[in-house]
Structure formats: structure tokens, C-alpha cells
Amino acid sequence: MDPQQVIECATACTVTVVHVISIPPFDLSLEEAGQISGAVLLVWAVGAVFREVAHMIDRKTSSTEQE
């Protein structure tokens, strides 16, 4: 998509409109976005590991209590 839109008038005038959306928290380079998504995935993975460890501990204590 062309970032510039040219509107021609019926008389001898030309209006050029440039739409630039820049929201500071989301104005990231590809490298910065990759770093953020990598950090989010790392936090998610650590949380998943903690959850599995908690389930293993819970199952172990449940089987010990039943004996």
C-alpha cells in the first residue's frame, strides 16, 4: 500500500495527505519486537515448568498420604 494518497482537485490544485500512525510503545523495530516476544516466551516457559513441578510434587505427596 502506498503511504501517500494524492487527491486531485477539479481546479489547479493537488492535495497530498500522508497518514502516519506512531504510537510510542508500539513503534518498535523488528529486532526490538523479537527481543520482547522472546522474553515473553521465556517467561511463559518458566511458568509452565513451575506448573509441572508443582503437579509432580502434588502427585507425589498425594500418593504418599494414601499409603
Rank of each mutant, 00 (worst) to 15 (best):
D2W: 08
Q5N: 09
D27K: 15
S22N: 13
R51D: 01
V46W: 04
T14M: 08
V18E: 04
V46M: 10
G38F: 01
A33L: 07
S63L: 10
T11D: 14
V15K: 03
C13W: 06
V46Q: 08
P24E: 00
S22G: 10
D58N: 05
F50N: 13
V53H: 01
P24C: 09
P3D: 08
T14N: 06
W44F: 10
L42W: 02
G47H: 03
H19N: 12
S22V: 10
G47L: 15
A33D: 10
W44N: 06
T61N: 09
V53F: 06
M1I: 06
D58G: 08
S29E: 08
L42M: 07
V15W: 00
Q4A: 11
Q66G: 11
W44G: 10
P25H: 07
S63F: 00
L28Q: 07
A39E: 13
I57A: 13
F50R: 12
V49W: 04
A54W: 12
F50K: 09
L41I: 06
I21C: 09
V40G: 03
E31T: 12
I57N: 00
S22F: 04
D58Q: 08
I36G: 04
G38Y: 00
T11Y: 11
V18A: 09
V18K: 14
T64N: 06
V49H: 04
F26S: 12
I21T: 11
P3F: 02
D27I: 00
E31L: 12
V15A: 10
H19I: 07
A10G: 14
I36S: 04
I7D: 12
Q35A: 08
T14H: 03
Q35F: 00
G34H: 01
E32A: 14
S29V: 06
Q35S: 05
A54D: 11
T64Q: 03
L42V: 05
V40A: 12
C13Y: 08
E8H: 07
Q35R: 13
V46P: 04
H55W: 03
S29P: 00
A12F: 12
A33H: 09
S37P: 00
W44I: 15
R59M: 01
F50C: 15
I23Q: 12
M1D: 05
I21V: 14
A33N: 12
I21E: 15
P25A: 10
P25F: 04
Q5I: 15
P24V: 09
F50A: 15
R51Y: 05
I57E: 00
W44Q: 08
A45I: 05
A12G: 15
Q5C: 08
V6P: 02
V40S: 04
L30E: 15
E32D: 10
V43N: 03
K60F: 09
E67L: 14
S62Q: 05
Q4T: 13
R59T: 02
K60P: 01
T11A: 12
E65F: 00
D27E: 10
T14F: 02
P3C: 07
G47I: 13
